[in-house]
Design a binder for these strands. Sequence first.
DNA 1: AGTTTTTTTGGTAGTGACTCGCATTTCGGG
DNA 2: CCCGAAATGCGAGTCACTACCAAAAAAACT
Lengths: 202, 202
Amino acid sequence: MSVAPVESARDRRRLRARRDLALAAVMLFEQQGFAATPVEEIAAAADYSASTFFRMFTRKEDAVFFDMPDRLESLRMTVPADATWPDVRAALVEHAHTWEADDPAFAAARVRLLHREPSLTSRYLEYCQEYEVWLTELVSNRSGADPQTDVAAQLAAGCIIAAFRSAFSVQAALPARKAASVVEYLEAAFDALEAGPLAPVT
Amino acid sequence: MSVAPVESARDRRRLRARRDLALAAVMLFEQQGFAATPVEEIAAAADYSASTFFRMFTRKEDAVFFDMPDRLESLRMTVPADATWPDVRAALVEHAHTWEADDPAFAAARVRLLHREPSLTSRYLEYCQEYEVWLTELVSNRSGADPQTDVAAQLAAGCIIAAFRSAFSVQAALPARKAASVVEYLEAAFDALEAGPLAPVT
DNA sequence: AGTTTTTTTGGTAGTGACTCGCATTTCGGG
DNA sequence: CCCGAAATGCGAGTCACTACCAAAAAAACT
């Protein structure tokens, strides 16, 4: 058996298929809407069958987030279990940066699409919750409490993700020409979080 | 035409049907799981047809949250547009209180179910986002900014909902006998939010 | 009370997401 | 070059959800 974890030809083929299907999906969703685009059509646009689509993605929505599992995994591997807040902040900023580094236009289009289509928004929120669970564990490592029952840890994680989400949300709401990099909004959100998030309502 | 907004016999019948279907749904979901329970079975358990079920709820998941639209609406009507943070905090605590006031056992069971079943968790997160949108508008009223592009307002709203969610999450994680009222966890979460949510990770 | 009108309900048919098992093809390794 | 394993496509099946229609029930009106 082979020990090569990443660089097999099969893996490369698989990655390419996932990417092709994802690009086709995003394009079609933008043009005709999520509900109006059957999986069959997405698969056909990428020269695959619907069977293969569901072998690549467990759900129709997942095609749009084709790179999320890998990115989330690399985030998990990068940040040590005893990281402090500045570490986490820097890691998340870097995370957001790589997100749009490869193809800024596609990244922005996807963020906008994801905020327009309720089904995709819902899936997005599920991914955010995955981030939150990870962050909750990270935070509760320092206090030594059980992450499942530690209100303070869950609150901290939730607020960090709230900052994350607000950055993407604002970028998506701005017209393509006016929108800046997510990193800028994210830094602003983190600054506001550190300064006290309730400031504007107090 | 009638001007009576609430107390029509039709409305009462409708409310009762919704509640019966919801109770049947929650019970069956608890026993056999969400995916393993077809809508047909829920409807039959409440002596209705599947047609009627989908007339009452747009989605299968919505049955579990049958009282959410009303509760959210009453929250909107209660809190004035120029409310300050203490007002909002008090309103949300009261909101959480009424949630479990009628039937604490059912409320706790539902919260636990909702955290166990991914499909229900997803729907729950969508409702949380509705709260967030409302709070964002509330907060941005004070700053006068556009809620869609105001990072600070969205962050504040997200953090408030993070506190809300952490309270329910902790209650759901605790075994039925050990769990206290959600209000207690919510007050603790709000206190932590006011004191600075990043404290445990700094 | 009886009739008309409106609402509610259940049934049927249809679409599309998603699953499963199978036959065929394709591909990597020996 | 060949053999075993994995990838692909196909067909059948389940179920959520929608649209439509006909019958039953309730409300409204005389």
